[in-house]
Design a protein around this nucleic acid. Structure first.
Lengths: 243, 243
DNA sequence: CGCAAATTTGAACGTAGTCAACAAGTGTGG
DNA sequence: CCACACTTGTTGACTACGTTCAAATTTGCG
């Protein structure tokens, strides 16, 4: 019954009652997705946005030669379809990687939010900027790091993200991705992903069994991934007052 | 005397007098930079943002092994330091690629803007999203396209961007980048960039002389670059009313 | 149990990187 | 105005990381 978006934003600021109401207003409707279902296709006409309520999805683009680049993985509390605030048609495709539930809402509601809740608007911009910074980190990884580094950092990223929703997750976790999907996210072929995973395993950083990964030497894996933790440096001191 | 930011936003919506005043308020101060000067370094403490008024700059990150990834090129009207809306320290370094002038302003002014100008806030979000989409395009290029494609698309991008500020620019233009910089933007070595440029030249798509490039077969170059023009699909119909 | 999808492995290949040397510009001070 | 230093561009030879292709094996699932 709770709102995922309220939870997400509530981690950044202390919400007023009115703000909570406004945010929950975005999650009135619900739509369930099977694993593999496509929520949005590139170039689809686009007037709705979505908030992820449950499950994991991915956003990706397809290139003329048929290859796929996964842009990001979407977890509960994430926004889908922000590009509808600018473009008539979607710039990305979205598909479910597990059973998933999303909450669709009309993009015009963002306009209402901006007009009535300046502080929430500020947080929205901050969330949006965090997305952008994640993309720059990925860009640097694709442009300037080796296959092993990219695979290692994907493992760490997904594990850390899963742990936010489930504090029980420790060294062992289910990645929930095929090796082909790992490849499409890291800019590699599935064959080479397989070799990199085996190499990380041989070097004692991870072990694998039945689709589950276990990080057996976390410091080494983090070093191999040149992982950047940005969550500790957040500062929203500039936000306008709540209305 | 005009404001670059007013110009930029004025291309997207019809500004009211009050909105123009608010936007020009962000460009009260000025700071000049020599070619090569560093405006911001990663991890620098950060409370100001900047609007580019003249010249070209780049934002980049340095990796642990010393390699550099250029994230984007900054032209008049672009915002610098949006990450100060979230992070205590800068996530990117910024350096001038030519003589340049920027207008610094306190990030808290964004809070004022949000509180007083809902429609401008919406446009700001739209601009921010356009930045994000550019990054996803680049990400797909780095992850899934060949060296030649990446170099070709960089040439087209820069030429097209220059043409926005100077309608005289046609097939011939000064790129203003060294081959090493092209490499750092496209995830290649300068040596390989050189080979790709020569190859594009041999195939009759471009010619070079004294630092200037001339596009000799634009349709072919655009095809080689699998260029995406997003500017034609903009739709800001959701914006709240101006106040 | 049987099928399809996913993983694993090997061999050959190719794109892009590395190293090195040289040429061509560019700017500076004498 | 020239000499010198330094940066940038150019080219060749060699290397290596990651891809491609193909086949075998394992896993998940109806």
């Amino acid at each position: 019954m709770g709102s995922c978006f309220v939870d997400r934003i509530g981690e950044l600021i202390e919400l007023t009652a009115a703000e909570m109401v406004a945010l929950s207003g975005l999650e009135q409707r619900e739509r369930s997705l099977r694993r593999g279902a496509v929520l949005l296709r590139e170039h689809d006409k686009l007037a709705d946005m979505f908030i992820v309520r449950r499950g994991v999805l991915m956003s990706f683009v397809l290139l003329p030669d048929g290859s796929r680049q996964i842009l990001r993985f979407l977890f509960p509390g994430d926004l889908i379809g922000v590009s509808s605030l600018v473009y008539r048609t979607s710039t990305e495709s979205i598909a479910a990687l597990s059973e998933a539930v999303v909450a669709p809402f009309d993009r015009a509601l963002i306009g209402t939010l901006i007009a009535e809740h300046p502080r929430l608007t500020g947080v929205l911009m901050a969330l949006h900027e965090m997305e952008r910074v994640i993309l720059t980190d990925r860009l640097a990884a694709l442009g300037r790091t080796s296959a092993k580094v990219r695979v290692a950092s994907l493992l760490i990223e997904i594990r850390n993200r899963q742990r936010i929703d489930d504090r029980n997750i420790g060294a062992s976790f289910a990645l929930g991705l095929t090796q082909e999907e790992i490849g499409d996210a890291t800019g590699l072929t599935s064959v080479h992903v397989n070799r990199m995973l085996r190499q990380l395993e041989e070097e004692g950083m991870i072990s694998r069994a039945g689709g589950r990964f276990t990080i057996t030497n976390e410091p080494a894996l983090i070093r191999a991934a040149n992982y950047i933790d940005r969550s500790s440096r957040i500062d929203l001191g500039w936000l306008p007052a709540a209305k």
